[in-house]
């Protein structure tokens, strides 16, 4: 090393050793390249003061802790980490043009995939899993229900609690309604009830009890679970908005399918075409989210007005 002073040499060696250790997960040549560059940098920086401990310390401080420096390089840089080298899959990317993402999903990430009015693309790679996700926010903009700048920092963070509860209440009522229908019709059902419709014709049958549990049990228990764990525990508005929109649309699909099953068992034909139910699933999800978003924006404007005019200290208007 450049310093004749053994203490300077020791400080530099120690630094480079730590840097090397922090670069173990990138290919050797690339790690060496980084280290060589830093050696030259240290030499250049201490050219006129190569024996001074203070000067070397200052230079190393300017580069930063070796671990942190290595981390920054890895985050910004062109390096292929060793795991990529061994053809391990990265947590996200594309295979044959099909996007995938198995990075840790968070509710916020998933929500932003489903709802981002400012991004005009309706189909985008999924936040988790393989394939594309629908950006319902962009759809709302395309249908001129929202403007692209109608966006909250965290989606749905201003939706009034009451609106969220009403969304949840609707699916509870819907499920109760279908349970009542099930009780009324249960005894009249034949021994075999259709539980699956290929595309219009039934192709799977089950006993009335199984069919009822399948079509009503799943949405009802999902409703109860979401009510208990998301609404009663007052999870974030984002969580409640997504839960309410999901369970409402899912209940419409399942309950509609159950009504179809009964109707077919009794009348030999369908009441509602299954494709219409699938369409309803998406439509209701979309309408619910759009409604929440509009109510949230209204609330935000109202809050800003209240804060601005009346009470600059009140942040929360419940």
């Amino acid at each position: 090393m450049n310093g004749k002073n053994p203490e300077v040499a020791k400080i530099i060696d120690n630094y480079l050793k730590r840097l090397k250790e922090s670069l173990q997960d990138i290919p050797k040549e690339e790690a060496q390249d980084i280290i060589d560059e830093i050696i030259v940098h240290i030499e250049d920086s201490t050219r006129f003061d190569s024996d001074s401990v203070e000067a070397v310390r200052a230079v190393l401080k300017d580069i930063g802790e070796p671990e942190e420096y290595a981390q920054n390089l890895k985050e910004e840089g062109y390096f292929t980490t060793k795991s990529n080298h061994q053809f391990k899959l990265k947590s996200s990317g594309r295979i044959l043009g099909m996007p995938y993402n198995f990075g840790r999903p968070t509710l916020k990430k998933i929500a932003e995939r489903m709802w981002e009015p400012s991004d005009p693309r309706v189909l985008r790679p999924k936040a988790f899993g393989v394939g594309w996700a629908i950006n319902f926010g962009a759809l709302a903009v395309k249908l001129r229900l929202l403007r692209p700048d109608d966006e909250e920092g965290v989606p749905f963070s201003n939706v009034p609690d009451r609106a969220l509860s009403i969304g949840m209440l609707l699916s509870i009522l819907l499920n109760i309604g279908v349970i009542i229908i099930a009780i009324i019709y249960f005894k009249r059902l034949p021994a075999k009830v259709p539980i699956h419709f290929g595309f219009a014709e039934p192709d799977q049958f089950a006993s009335p009890l199984k069919a009822t549990l399948w079509w009503i049990g799943i949405p009802s228990s999902a409703t109860v679970i979401l009510y208990l764990f998301v609404f009663l525990r007052k999870k974030s508005r984002l969580a409640r908005a997504l839960s309410a929109a999901f369970i409402l649309s899912f209940s419409v699909l399942s309950d509609g399918a159950y009504i179809d099953s009964i109707y077919y068992a009794l009348n030999g034909r369908l009441a509602i075409h299954p494709s219409l139910l699938v369409f309803a699933l998406f439509a209701i999800f979309f309408i619910t989210l759009t409604t929440f978003s509009k109510l949230g924006l209204k609330e935000e404007w109202r809050k800003n007005k209240v804060i601005g005019i009346r009470n600059p200290n009140s942040k929360e208007v419940s």
């Binding site: 940098h41 580069i63 920054n72």
Partner: peptide
Amino acid sequence: ISAGTVYPLLSRLKK
């Protein structure tokens, strides 16, 4: 700006 910022930036520009 610090050297610790410049080199990663160079890395990014190269990438």
